[in-house]
Amino acid sequence: MSTESLVNKEAFAPEEPHDFGERWRVGALLLILADAAFVAALSFSFLYLRALDTQGSFHPGGTGVATLWWPWTVSAVMVLSALAYWTQLRGSFANGVAVSVAGMAVALVLTIVQMYQFPFTVSDNAYSAAVWIITAANVFHLALTVFLGLGIAIRRQRGANRGARDWHVRIVGIWYTWVCVAAFVGTLTISVANGTVGCPLAKDQPDPGARSVPSSSCSSSAR
């Protein structure tokens, strides 16, 4: 292409806020993609170790099991917070952003309390370490969400979300939705693993790396 063919007077016009917003949204979605790979790696690690149950030590009998009440409650609070956020964006809940930030902050506190309430320490076995890391990942997500939500709330107060920056509000909403999905995945992973811990190893596969009996064949008395 020649230099002459490149001249375009219209190019002097500034880009539209919409262009910037779309750009920011694509960037946020790509970061979420990377984060999703990270969450998938943690869940994979948990379930993989559970499936191998190396030396029958993934979760030996007599050691603590994380209660599912905490993570499901935290997930529910997060979903309600995200709903509040999106409701304000739809224009039907005046204080939705403030409520959502408060909700996420409560979820953050609940998660930290949950970590203190674990009936095990992180060094007990692979199960305890896996539950701990998945919960810690949720703490990281929630801390970031509170930061972003707080920023949006303050900026609304100051009238800073104007023009292209109005897109920040929507993009943070996407992040709210994603952290709920991530929390759900983490909670589901713990629930699946909890449902099978304590199952005996197959007798014909005593070596490290031997598979456990599938959960469907694990009797309730064995759990």
Binding site: S57, V122, A126
Partner: peptide, 22 residues
């Protein structure tokens, strides 16, 4: 996960705690 193993005594890669180098 290695961080948890080394700094906090986790067992992700330690076979006698149910971990796996694989």
């Amino acid at each position: 996960l290695l961080f948890v193993d080394r700094v906090m005594g986790g067992g992700f890669y330690v076979p006698n705690r149910g971990g796996q180098p694989w």
